[in-house]
């Protein structure tokens, strides 16, 4: 069976005045039908650049230098900009962190949904498009769609705007919805509503979701599988329960440990010392070596290979090598 989406050995570079940023350094992952994959990781670790390459939305100075992005077997990495235009919005849609920047402030929201339909659904009549737009507005949980159709984004609350962004993204029944920090700019009570909505919609319209987030609570809430990024690489991928309960990589362990727990009250939090590596000059060995509590000589010299832990659980760490068994814990 071929996978819905399969990313293989993807490598992305960004040229800047000061040198080349190795933003994504050989990542591989897949996404199955109706699955939700969460990507987590430190700021600057390459999460947004990874999904932007899938969308063909890399900045002008950015380039895929290696690897493939297979959507049902077709390699998007080889697509021209024109081919990508027909993929975006119809096969794959993306929503961004700040709902205000993804909406046009000068256009009523109904029209913004209709515009997407005009681009991808030439078979629809004007009336059908309007009807579909109204249906989408109510699908994302906004009441009184007729009245809302004619409103401008600034007349809506932040949470409602993000619902509209989702409606626009879902207009053409995409196979894959990519959400880059969709709730980071929202309050927790609104975040809970949006997560609920995404879960609900996934069941109703059977899309697959890739969600990028910093928040491990959000991961636990919505993800089926999780990919952890660090220094431009995927350091661990696992089912959500394995990631939380059978954590394999020292960075993931550190991340989970730094969340305050009731038992931490009155004592220090378990912080990860130091800062993430500079992707202009990534370290030659393990990217986490400078901050890891388990660093060995080999870690600084050679990049660890992607190793299988159990089932589909993978991690990139020398501790998983047979020869390091005794050092694991």
């Amino acid at each position: 069976m071929s996978r819905l989406l399969e990313v293989n050995q993807l490598r992305v570079q960004i040229e800047t005045q000061h040198g080349t940023v190795q933003a994504v350094r050989g990542i591989s992952f897949h996404l199955d039908e109706q699955e939700t994959l969460a990507i987590v990781g430190e700021s600057g670790s390459g999460k947004s650049i990874s999904v932007k390459s899938i969308m063909g939305l890399l900045p002008k100075n950015g380039k895929i230098v290696e690897g493939s992005i297979l959507l049902e077997g077709k390699d998007l990495a080889k697509y021209s900009e024109r081919q990508m235009q027909s993929v975006r919005g119809s096969d794959i849609s993306m929503i961004f962190q700040d709902p205000m920047t993804s909406l046009n402030p000068t256009m009523i929201i109904g029209k913004q949904i209709v515009e997407v339909l005009k681009e991808h659904r030439r078979d629809m009549t004007k009336a059908q498009m309007k009807e579909r737009a109204l249906e989408l507005i109510s699908l994302v949980g906004i009441s009184n769609p007729e009245a809302r159709f004619d409103q401008y984004p600034h007349q809506l609350s932040g949470g409602m705007r993000q619902r509209v962004v989702i409606a626009v993204a879902l207009a053409c029944d995409p196979r894959i919805l990519i959400a880059d920090e969709p709730t980071t700019a929202l309050d927790v009570t609104i975040q809970a509503q949006i997560l609920d909505l995404m879960r609900d919609l996934q069941k109703k319209i059977k899309t697959s979701i890739i969600i990028i987030t910093h928040n491990l609570g959000v991961v636990a809430n919505i993800a089926d599988r999780v990919a952890v990024m660090y220094g431009g690489q995927l350091v661990e991928t696992a089912d959500v329960r394995d990631l939380f309960y059978e954590t394999a990589h020292p960075y993931t362990k550190g991340l989970l440990a730094s969340i305050p727990k009731a038992s931490d009250k009155g004592s220090d939090l378990t912080a990860i010392p130091g800062t993430p590596p500079d992707l202009m000059e990534p370290p030659k060995g393990c990217p986490f070596a400078a901050r890891c509590t388990k660093t060995m000589e080999v870690c600084r010299q050679y990049p660890p290979k992607d190793m299988l832990c159990r089932g589909t659980h993978r991690a990139r760490c020398w501790l998983l090598d047979e020869r390091a068994k005794a050092l694991r814990e």
Binding site: E42, S43, H214, L216, G254, L255, S258, I259, P260, D268, L269, T270, A271, I272, P273, T275, P276
Partner: peptide, 14 residues
């Protein structure tokens, strides 16, 4: 970032 948040909180408490 989450891992850096813990550093700053520890510093403030200390």
């Amino acid at each position: 970032d989450v891992s850096i948040q813990a550093q700053v909180i520890n510093l403030l408490k200390e």
